[in-house]
Design a protein around this nucleic acid. Structure first.
Ligand SMILES: [Mn+2]
Ligand SMILES: [Mn+2]
Ligand SMILES: [Zn+2]
Ligand SMILES: [Zn+2]
Lengths: 143, 143
DNA sequence: TCATATATTTAGAATAAGTCTAAAGTGAGA
DNA sequence: TCTCACTTTAGACTTATTCTAAATATATGA
């Protein structure tokens, strides 16, 4: 990495991330991971495809986007976010955090864990909470 | 309602519920509402169809199941529950409560609000919590 | 290097949940 | 009884996602 190469500055980190999780960093995987790492928009597979297709010199197929998203998810690089029926969204923020869905704009923003400590109380003035849902995953005794 | 008619005992309550929400209680709607009111399984549309199709003297089409589930949801009789990609589940428990997904069996059980008050702490010995997700719906300032 | 094995990508077919359409059925009131 | 709005229906359609089978690329190692 040279000092004047400011465009590819962050590429090594996505590559390193994939390598550290045992995922071979192909160009398609790297560019998808980079896109997810720099956005906060929680995009769908389609949104990833259209955002990344032009940024890639080589062509990128729909199947590869889905393959890559599933590979990254299984490797723990990204997480699925389910907010509405029929579409899966993806999030490179794999820390234990939560999401706030703006029902007006559809935007999904991250909520840090500490904001949720007192879940029955207000989130803060900037959020008008219509409702919330807690979804647990685990095992029940005698399930 | 006669004293010896123990089979149709609960039918009036589903009918009354639909009437009270401004939904015309057709036989198809009543039988679907009854099924949802008596189960705790959070069924999908397909599961509703196969559970209810044989219990109904008249035929029941897939489109009517979807129409009815959407009608009941818009009328506030039932709620959608999103737990996994690609399938919507339905819940006649419209109280503000939460869900616990058993990752072993796939069963979804209700969690009352008070259990969730201290969300960072354990749910209780009978639940092994692998993780949880809080999903807010509302509006963000400057969204 | 070359050969070969393995992994990845690809286009397009297939699947599956859900919606739409247009026609037929139903039923409460005029 | 007639009528009109509402409901149900079968099947076509849409859309997100997965599958398939062939083509590419990458890695290994003789
Ligand atoms: Mn999508
Ligand atoms: Mn289903
Ligand atoms: Zn997030
Ligand atoms: Zn429930």
């Amino acid at each position: 990495m040279t000092a004047h190469n400011h465009i590819t500055e962050q590429i090594p980190s996505a590559e390193q991330l994939l390598l550290s999780r045992g995922v071979k960093p192909t160009p398609q995987r790297v560019v998808i991971a980079e896109y997810l790492l720099q956005t906060e928009s929680h995009p769908t597979a389609d949104e990833v495809l259209s955002a990344v297709a032009q940024a890639l010199p080589v062509s990128l197929s729909r199947a590869t986007v889905y393959n890559t998203l599933n590979t990254l998810k299984e490797a723990g690089v990204i997480k699925e976010v389910l907010t509405e029926p029929g579409r899966v969204r993806y999030d490179a923020n794999i820390s234990h955090h939560h999401h706030f869905v703006d029902v007006k704009t559809g935007k999904i923003v991250d909520i840090p864990l500490n904001k949720v400590e007192a879940i029955g109380k207000l989130l803060g003035d900037q959020y008008k909470v219509h409702g919330f849902q807690v979804l647990f995953y685990g095992e029940v005794e005698g399930g």
